[in-house]
Design a protein around this nucleic acid. Structure first.
Lengths: 230, 230
DNA sequence: CGCTGCGTTGAGCTTCTTCAACGATCGTGG
DNA sequence: CCACGATCGTTGAAGAAGCTCAACGCAGCG
């Protein structure tokens, strides 16, 4: 059965026995969402958590005036909203499918049951949460201590690494989404992309970005260098 | 032995057996730090985690130019740097004692051992990490979507709640530290405290702040209202 | 063909930071 | 006990970064 294969491919479920996979499958539901559809809203009660099977999901906060801050974008194999399982609290953010997506839903009670019996699952989960915590700490650092050019440079380098250092990096999300991920707005992002381009750091063609000066971007990302106005 | 009592009073260690407490005590070290002393630096290898026994500890990031962003301030009973235990990675931030402090050090290997044998410990830890994740998400939201008056208002209300709604709230940290916690600088904080004061939201006398208009602060914190310049 | 979503560009403005000076408080050593 | 320096907080003036508002271009698609 392919669901079993999928579960086995998910890092946090690594190391479970066949029986435990079957136990999981028993309590699990598969949900489908169209592009732009809400999976849950901030404040809803969290009765379980999710794993992306196909597509991608963004987790985000909204301000009163409607500005959005993306906390994370998850792709296949990645769990989300796990934290809500362990604190008896409502979801602290919104979740929305960026594309046609399928997600696995795992109910809270069954999962806690399973985790109590299987230490390796607990350790996997602890590792996953710890990693996420580290990411958030990095995000706080960037929002507070770096300006937008630095954050953008860091993100481009991150993408480059993710995609195994290709000639040219591809943005998998729209620029408006990228702006929201970097804690800014599309106008500002656009201007800074233009500046990075005109100063020879990168070359931009739609969603394709060629990194021309890796060292320069690194210096920007670390805050060792400032982008001039020209 | 009082160490045992202390351990029993720490939330993440709740529910362990006497033998397990003794096991913990065997591997644990007590460390003392003076005011302003570094406990660890960003980039150091994390060989275990800590629990504050006395005093307080700040976890913070530094920018190249020397600006500081405080991620968290921990007091007695609170664990810190646990995440480093579960990802085999160096500490992602600095830790420093804000006052004369004593902290318990728990080595990584022994703790993973214990957690594998004791599901309730794993669940406690998962709950603790989840809570921290939620806090960080909140911090990201505030840094990105709220301006300083809103963040300050939210913090004052948080303090008020922490201290069980007294007449007047007491800042337990200096204003420079508070500024760093809110993602700004002392000058800006000072001006905004003054503005909040002159507009009748609060009254400031050194580290004592009287909340005069709770509803007003709430509106500010939610972003429903803006602080006028006067 | 025109609509809609997305991205870009310009002008003006707000918020926050920077730089500088000053005042208060506190602990220490003379 | 006073003087001194250090730390901390406050205030002012100027500057920079990013946001708002508005207009426009362009591609995809019904």
């Amino acid at each position: 059965m392919q669901l079993m294969d999928f579960l086995a491919s998910v890092p946090i479920f690594k190391g479970l026995s066949r029986e435990q996979y079957e136990e999981l499958i028993m309590v699990t539901t598969i949900q489908g969402y169209g592009r732009g559809q809400t999976i849950f809203a901030e404040g809803e009660e969290g009765k379980g958590f999710f794993v992306v099977m196909e597509g991608s999901v963004k987790i985000y906060k909204l301000s009163v005036e409607g500005k959005e801050q993306i906390l994370h974008i998850f792709g296949p194999g990645e769990p989300f909203a796990e934290a809500a399982v362990f604190v008896g609290a409502p979801f602290p953010a919104h979740a929305l499918a960026l594309q046609k997506s399928r997600v696995l839903f795992i109910p809270r009670a069954a999962f806690i049951d399973l985790i109590s019996k299987e230490p390796s699952l607990a350790l996997n989960m602890l590792a996953a949460l710890s990693l996420r915590l580290k990411r958030f700490a990095q995000m706080i650092e960037e929002l507070s201590l770096k300006e937008v050019p630095g954050r953008l440079a860091a993100h481009l380098l991150y993408l480059s690494e993710q995609q195994h250092y290709p000639e040219t990096v591809r943005l998998e999300i729209g620029k408006a989404q990228l702006a929201s991920l970097l804690g800014t707005i599309p106008e500002t992002l656009s201007r800074i992309l233009a500046r990075l381009g005109s100063q020879g750091f990168i070359s931009v063609k739609g969603p394709e970005i060629t990194i021309l000066d890796k060292e320069g971007l690194e210096a920007l990302a670390l805050g060792e260098m400032r982008l001039t106005n020209g």
